[in-house]
Design a protein around this nucleic acid. Sequence first.
DNA 1: CTGAAAGCGCTTACAG
DNA 2: CTGAAAGCGCTTACAG
Lengths: 331, 331
Amino acid sequence: MKPTISDVAKKAGVSIATVSRILNRLPGYTEETRKAVLNVIREIGYKPNAIARGLVKKHTYTMGVLLPNISSRLASALLKGIEDAAHRLGYSVIICNTDNDGRRTVEYLNVLAEKQVDGIIIASEWLKDAYGEALLAMKIPVVLVLTVSYRFQIPYIKVDDKQAAYQATKYLIEKGHKEIGMIGGSVQDIIAGLPRIEGYKQALADYNLTITDDRIAFGNFAYESGIRCMDELFQKVPEITAVFAASDEMALGALSFAFRKGIKVPDDLSIIGYDDTQDAEMTIPPLTTVHQPVYEMGKKSVEMLFSTKGAVESIIMPHYIVERDSVKKIN
Amino acid sequence: MKPTISDVAKKAGVSIATVSRILNRLPGYTEETRKAVLNVIREIGYKPNAIARGLVKKHTYTMGVLLPNISSRLASALLKGIEDAAHRLGYSVIICNTDNDGRRTVEYLNVLAEKQVDGIIIASEWLKDAYGEALLAMKIPVVLVLTVSYRFQIPYIKVDDKQAAYQATKYLIEKGHKEIGMIGGSVQDIIAGLPRIEGYKQALADYNLTITDDRIAFGNFAYESGIRCMDELFQKVPEITAVFAASDEMALGALSFAFRKGIKVPDDLSIIGYDDTQDAEMTIPPLTTVHQPVYEMGKKSVEMLFSTKGAVESIIMPHYIVERDSVKKIN
DNA sequence: CTGAAAGCGCTTACAG
DNA sequence: CTGAAAGCGCTTACAG
């Protein structure tokens, strides 16, 4: 059996209370007994049981993070930020891959509640009512990353999607493009879908450029859909010279489609992405894209989660355009 | 305060023992009292405390996974496999990003021990003696993925690296290539470095092709190093017509280098990668590469971890070549 | 079928 | 400075 606190107490000839005090650096023992106890601990290889400790302290130093897909590039970067900050603050992180599945999400929320986690981060997910209620019932801190909720007032951290999309589009316009298409998410997706489309439309409107439904193709942020949308766009509006893709992955799809069709990027077609995931700098040509500070958002989200000052404020992070080689200036 | 088992017992007019039996589906109560108790539970929103439960059962239904870099493509896929299997078996997974840092790794091992995890998966890491000792002391199941240990007899699951590298090289040879270079890992890395280089050399030897030190450039499996190595290779051995890269990421680097120099892939240069990460199908041109079943390895590793049959055997997973468009058949 | 009680491994007043 | 004891929220023989 693993040694317990009473094993060390017995062997050191003191009470478990004293051992506990020494372990927790509380006052109440001589340097002499401290040394003796520490020796015994080393000798028998004692390690405190965090489960027992958690039971009495009602604090587990464990947190959960829910994401729709752990293996997306975006999630990877976010997770690293979360893990780094959590580790620095002494927390362990339990990952929950929801697959965007409601039942699975509720299961996870339950498990996290039962395991008495100290906080939960929810990334990218649209917060359904059931989740919000469950979260409320848990009475622990929660923060939203890369998403917001209107129904539940939970602190969030994200970029201003509409503004970022506006600027991506404006960037293309300033490079001389007049026929600009967009590969967007679903308009039903009021986090990453609609706002980016609105930003795109707003920019076109402000510069008096043509806006038509044809110029927008709807994907699901994934690679394959980028290919399909680019195809669609080209068939419907062959005159476009530039495309704004609402995710880097879709931009990669557009890039691939162009390659297969012999369309040169950026000579024949300019493409700007969104996210600035690791992929963006590895593409051919390297992708110009809107940078979201995802790693930092991950870090900040856990700092917010365990921030000690009362009501936590939400944060809108700055975004900026990273110029690489997928957009060409035309006449 | 959150309701506890005694709150429901009190309210239902039974003992906590009965509530516990009902919760755990043990025999010993009438259908009537079961219904009544379940009602109270729903009414007051009681959720069992897994920490308390874990303390007495000495089973936390939590496991840890250590990886050098959670945000690599390989880790992403692996993690998803691990998470899926763990979730299906009712386990939560704590992620530990070691950054290949010894001190941090030991810290994590300590935390996992204190948190009484039921098992640990170690991915890609070279198992230092200190880790092995710590693991042994914990007396819990451990499995190694994408790595092995010779010093410690811990079950592992991986591909046969030498064999896979041999076959990648043979594939190039069978496509008519005679001047074949390699972008490898360090020879000090006896897991993913040396064996793949040996496989490459062995294949060349078996087919009586030229082997020189010049034909091997040493990277660190990352994108940037792929660029650098390809550059190096081209300067030293301009006659090579094909390259075997020991990771897809380095293959992407090679691809980028070729693109910048105006070298056409696969017309002027053929490239075969290793891993078959998600990137491989998104490159331009799509990358021919050795497929490692990483997601499945993730799943299998947790199944091994919690397998009930005695001594666990190690597994060598099958690999195969995925033919895409980065290798050309020549004369 | 049901409950009282001990125990899991700790922390924390309280008393000395 | 130090220890006995209660308690955290459960499970599990044991007795009835």
